[in-house]
Amino acid sequence: MQLLGLYNYFVFATLLMVGLYCVLARTNIIKSLIGLSIFQSAVFLLYISMDKVDGGTAPIIPSDAPPDIIYANPLPQVLILTAIVVGISTTALGLAVAVRIREAYGTIEEDKIQEMDREQ
């Protein structure tokens, strides 16, 4: 049961591993960027797993709420809203660079690009 309560964090660790491996091992730029976004999403899972409270609900307090409702922790949610937007911003910029690299080199495979740069 103890381990089951930590299942979220194990998934977080696994996703981080998959993401990082995808970024570092793949030479294709788009594939690396997909890996990068998995890597970032894993961190979202870490934070959001912290917000859950047993028997809780989303932190929206209606004006006539009975006082004994348990709410989830709002702070990690706010932080992750921010982080999601950072993630898409980075991805968009990375993709734009990838498109320009394709136009300048004719490929988006890093090993080929390295070869071409070495010849220069």
Partner: peptide
């Protein structure tokens, strides 16, 4: 080559920032 340098910088910079974020978490 500025584009390739930028791409590497984006990847490494994002990994660095995400590490920081994990630490803060």
């Amino acid at each position: 080559r500025a584009l390739v340098a930028t791409y590497r910088y984006i990847v490494m910079g994002t990994i660095g920032a995400t590490f920081y974020l994990i630490g803060v978490g």
